[in-house]
C-alpha cells in the first residue's frame, strides 16, 4: 500500500499532534525544569516539521497523483489470500495458543500455511507436525520455556 507523500505526511502529522497533546498532560514534578513530557514533545515537534515538509513536497511534486496506490499483488486474489495468510497465522496463534495449547495450534496453523503456499497437503502435514513438535521439545525440554499446554495433557519424553 503506497501512500502519496501528502497522505503520508498527514498521517505522521496526526501522530505527532497526538504525542504532543498527550505529553502536555504529563505532570512535571515541582522544582524540575524538564519533566516526562519534555522529550516526547521535542521528538514529536521534529516529526511534525518533517511531516509538514512531506505534505508540501507531495502537494508540489505529485499533483494529481492518486492518494493511495495498491500494490500489484492486490489485483491477484491468490496473492491477496497468501499475504493475508501471514496475518491469519499470527492472529490464530494469538487467539488460540493459550487455551488450546501449542501442540495443537502450531501444527494446524503451520499445516494450513504450508499447504496454501506450497501444496502437497500430506507432506505438508508431516512437515508441520514434525517441525512444531521439534520446536516444542527444544524450547520446553531443553530451554525450559513454558509454551502453553492448553488442553494437551502434560507429558515428558526423556
Amino acid at each position: 500500500m503506497r501512500f502519496n507523500d501528502t497522505v503520508l505526511g498527514a498521517i505522521f502529522l496526526a501522530l505527532a499532534v497526538f504525542i504532543i497533546v498527550s505529553a502536555s498532560g504529563f505532570h512535571t514534578p515541582p522544582g524540575q525544569k524538564f519533566g516526562p513530557g519534555f522529550f516526547p514533545t521535542i521528538v514529536a515537534s521534529v516529526m511534525a516539521a518533517a511531516a509538514i515538509g512531506l505534505i508540501v513536497k507531495g502537494l508540489v511534486g505529485r499533483r494529481g497523483a492518486r492518494l493511495v496506490e495498491l500494490d500489484a499483488w492486490f489485483s491477484q486474489p491468490r496473492l491477496v489470500v497468501q499475504g493475508a495468510s501471514v496475518f491469519a497465522f499470527l492472529l490464530g496463534y494469538l487467539a488460540f495458543s493459550e487455551d488450546i495449547g501449542f501442540l495443537i495450534v502450531a501444527p494446524l496453523l503451520l499445516w494450513a500455511l504450508i499447504w496454501l503456499l506450497w501444496g502437497h497437503p500430506m507432506v505438508a502435514l508431516v512437515i508441520a507436525a514434525g517441525a512444531s513438535f521439534a520446536i516444542h521439545q527444544f524450547f520446553v525440554q531443553v530451554l525450559l520455556v513454558p509454551l502453553p499446554w492448553g488442553i494437551v495433557p502434560y507429558f515428558k519424553l526423556f
Binding site: 501471514v86 497465522f89 499470527l90 503451520l110 504450508i114 503456499l117 506450497w118 508441520a128 512444531s132 520446536i135
Partner: peptide
C-alpha cells in the same frame, strides 16, 4: 514455501 512458515513459527 516450506521454510517461510517454519521461520514464522520461530
Amino acid at each position: 514455501e516450506v521454510l517461510m512458515p517454519i521461520i514464522l513459527l520461530f
